[in-house]
Amino acid sequence: MRSLADAVDETAERTGFSGVVRVDRAGRTELCSAFGWADRAHHVPHTVHTQLAIASGSKGFTALVVMSLLERGLLDLGTTARSLLADDLALIAPDVTVEHLLRSGIGDYLDEHDLEVTDYVLTLPVHQLDSTEQYLPVLEGHETAFAAGARFAYNNGGYVVLALLAERASGVAFHELVRTLVCEPAGMVDTAFLRSDELPGRAARGYLHRHGLRTNVLHLPVVGSGDGGAYSTAADLAEFWKALFAGRIVSRASVAAMLDPRSDWPEEHQRFGLGFHLRASGDGVWLEGYDAGVSFVSAHDPATTTTCTVMANWTDGAWLMVRLLEEQFGL
């Protein structure tokens, strides 16, 4: 029977995987391997320390910022968006609360049902989107799809609004909130919202296709916000899950509330908590990101303390590797 390392190597060779794969179980790293190019043009290879974009995986960080502010008394799940938005984003209904934004939808500036992730979808030049307040023009003008709490709909705009509410409630910029409330207590030293037009040497460029040099720099905000855009490493993600379940980011009671299934998502064969994907049954939980030049999953099984992380720097690069690990570990 082939070993896990052999299976991962074979899958990487067959699929053109480019990125990092890591598996931790019961406090031990069983596998951590890097494949392909972090920078194709200059033939810079991935290493296990490469910082890769995680796209919507960042939503979990946003949810944790919100829960941390709840614990500090600066927000509440029942806080209405309108109470902090004032006259901004007038189409967000008066009854939409923080909890609604965490688990259901408002009118979405980036509706993934209506586009391909490699399309040019933003209505502003991407270089203007370098802070959460700068997102206001793209969040405007989207009618609410259904009454608050009526049903579940995966939503990007809601998480940018959550970042905006967190800023206004705390008086601190969102990226600073992620750093101080999530990354520092978790020991995530290599996780940050990096500018895509000035990436440091250890950060991977995101490529649209399996082959070629075209990157995603014109497809995404130059700096991400509440719905995506953080860069991280496989080691940091392993630390994240340990810190989360140890209650070092928010209390264990808050973690339990976030991982309580709030919504069914039958078309995706899963459930959704507050910022986290949940298996249709069992305790498996994960973060996932998919965007132009980015595909990412980090999954954790608290019963076996198994964490599997797949980080890829081209649009569809992660999924066959993710399938292999799902088959191996049932995550």
Rank of each mutant, 00 (worst) to 15 (best):
Y290V: 01
W241A: 02
L218E: 11
V117P: 01
S225W: 06
G201I: 00
W286P: 00
T97P: 02
R214F: 03
T47R: 08
A147Q: 14
Y207P: 02
Y207H: 07
E71D: 05
F61K: 12
R2I: 01
D227H: 11
V250M: 11
L244H: 10
V126E: 11
Y154C: 13
N313K: 11
T62G: 11
S232Y: 08
G60I: 12
V21R: 01
S263N: 08
T233R: 02
V65R: 09
D108F: 01
A173L: 15
M188T: 08
L77Q: 00
L324M: 12
N216R: 12
T29V: 13
G229A: 15
L115N: 07
A192P: 02
T15H: 11
A235I: 00
R179G: 08
L324I: 08
L129F: 10
Y154P: 14
V98A: 03
V126D: 10
P185E: 15
L181I: 05
R262D: 10
V98I: 08
T306P: 04
F146T: 09
A147F: 11
Q270K: 11
H211C: 06
P266A: 03
V322F: 11
A280C: 12
V44D: 01
D76I: 00
V255G: 10
V126K: 13
A253Q: 13
T47K: 07
E326Q: 15
G206N: 05
S131W: 05
H42I: 00
L181H: 07
V310M: 07
G158M: 03
H142G: 04
C183M: 14
L164Q: 07
R168F: 13
A256M: 12
